[in-house]
Design a protein around this nucleic acid. Structure first.
Lengths: 191, 191
DNA sequence: ACCTGAACACCGTTCAAGT
DNA sequence: ACCTGAACACCGTTCAAGT
């Protein structure tokens, strides 16, 4: 009897189109922000518009594919830092800084990430929840060490980190102040 | 000789259409946010689309007309508080709270207000600058009294206040935390 | 002077027709 | 199994034609 195959390997052209879409997506979203024209993405990938929708049924699915790896790494990194925890505050702050860099990858991404909280059906929901919880571990450690206020929740942290990233995207003057604003907000979290 | 009239009174129908547009605008923007469909505004006002554009050449012009009074009042209020200044910190914080309420009038308004910083041609630029500078007066007073960190600029303040308003708009869970997040951010500004 | 809506160039999304 | 692009219902914005 023949070998059973529950999961088929994708057809070669499908795989190639997916790769082209991801590459084009990264470029176009970098230029136009997270709300970029999906038509432009398909055009840049030299692929039919329907093909884009076949691979990524909505904008969040494309974003998820583009960002998943980075977000998983960030979640892992938080887990490691929480386990080590020689300086829990420094660990938290360092991780937050990295998170902000990721959230600032595309203009308007912070809004999309926060919107994840109100619809669990979003393809981004899983990666975001994982990241949020990982950050929550670092937060809890810093709180146990008496370095961060006890009334700060993981969601608070997620909201404020995205807000700082969001500010930087709104105007060049603000992007310049980004580091400083990050510091001000973090200081607000200290006991 | 006849009386010179440099500024004509607007035609009655024009005045009426403008009023209808403002009322419809307030409703539709409240429902759909600052990025609402201008077609819907014209429809609700029972006015041709061209009429909307004649009265308000772009979205910011409509927003300005809808928000001008509130923003001017806020600027005045800041001026008064700065002059009185019995408790400069309480004055600043109270004013910030009021500002946040105004910035939260329509979803996505905070982004529009911050975007004002990057294009001075926006009809909202004047009212925003006035408000920013008025808030800056309260900030300076609180800093002179040694209650707020000296490294906080008026632009920092404007950015953070809008960011807190923005967070509240992103998800119901976050709207609930709005007061608390406001407190955290303000604490970050204290010396 | 002011109003109107068709016209244009864009969207996101779907789906019948192809290979 | 997958790709394609026309089709649909929307945008913002402009402008010739009307009153």
């Amino acid at each position: 009897m023949s070998v059973e195959q529950t999961a088929r390997a994708p057809r070669a052209d499908a795989r190639r189109n997916r790769d082209r879409l991801l590459e084009a997506g990264a470029q176009v979203l970098a230029e136009q922000g997270a709300g970029a024209s999906l038509r432009d993405v398909a055009r840049r990938a030299e692929v039919g518009l329907g093909t884009l929708y076949r691979h990524f049924p909505n904008r969040e699915a494309l974003l998820e594919a583009l960002l998943a790896r980075r977000f998983e790494e960030l979640a892992c990194r938080a887990g490691e830092l929480a386990a080590e925890q020689d300086d829990p505050e420094a660990a938290l702050v360092g991780w937050l800084r990295e998170f902000c860099a990721g959230a600032g990858a595309y203009r308007d991404l912070p809004g999309t990430l926060l919107a994840t909280l109100r619809d669990p059906a979003s393809p981004l929901h899983a990666s975001c929840t994982a990241m949020r919880e990982a950050g929550g571990g670092l937060l809890a450690a810093a709180q146990r060490a008496g370095r961060i206020r006890a009334d700060v929740t993981g969601t608070d942290l997620f909201a404020l980190a995205n807000a700082v990233s969001w500010i930087a995207d709104q105007a060049p003057v603000l992007a310049e102040r980004s580091e400083h604003l990050f510091g001000l907000v973090v200081d607000g979290l200290r006991v």
